[in-house]
Amino acid sequence: MGDIIVAVLLVVGSSLMFVAALGILRMPDLFTRMQATTKAATLGVGLLLAAAAVEFGNLAVTTRVIAAAVFIAMTAPVAAHLLGRAAYFLGVPLWEGSVRDELRGRYNERAHALASLEEELGEERLAPGRATRRGIVSDDFSERPKPGDSAGAPEGTS
């Protein structure tokens, strides 16, 4: 019985890891790749660790497995958030099929803060022209969809 549970956990966990790798290979831009890898790989590695816990079946291994799984589940979203934020500031282009870019024009590029936060701090508000991200990086950026372009699109498409 234990062998069957271990086998099922191994197959499902490694399949999820494979899905994560497939995501990083085939997804069109950085942000979709990140959402594919972070979640699928976290769940997959958690299932593989659970397989190890069932296989060894003693307290020391189970404790280490739980510690490792909790650590991964806590750090993977933090790392993905930091990296996605850094990539957005770097100007990594979104996929041309992206429907919406909520942060476009709302970030102060120098302070790395949201425009609403800047108002609270009493500093001058971002001028609309200043707030575009054009000119920071390559020309790919000018093709980033404006929020107004998607205004006519139905809400359910995203």
């Binding site: 490694s14 890891m17 950085l30 790989a41 990296l83 850094a86 990539a87 990594v92």
Partner: peptide, 29 residues
């Protein structure tokens, strides 16, 4: 560059999965 960092992240997580499977196969925790 962030693409490469994400790939490196996934690479080490896959390595962790391989280590776990090897721990099960070899019977060494």
């Amino acid at each position: 560059l962030p693409d490469r960092v994400v790939a490196l992240d996934l690479l080490t997580i896959q390595g962790l999965g391989l280590l776990t499977v090897y721990a099960i196969a070899a019977g060494r925790s």
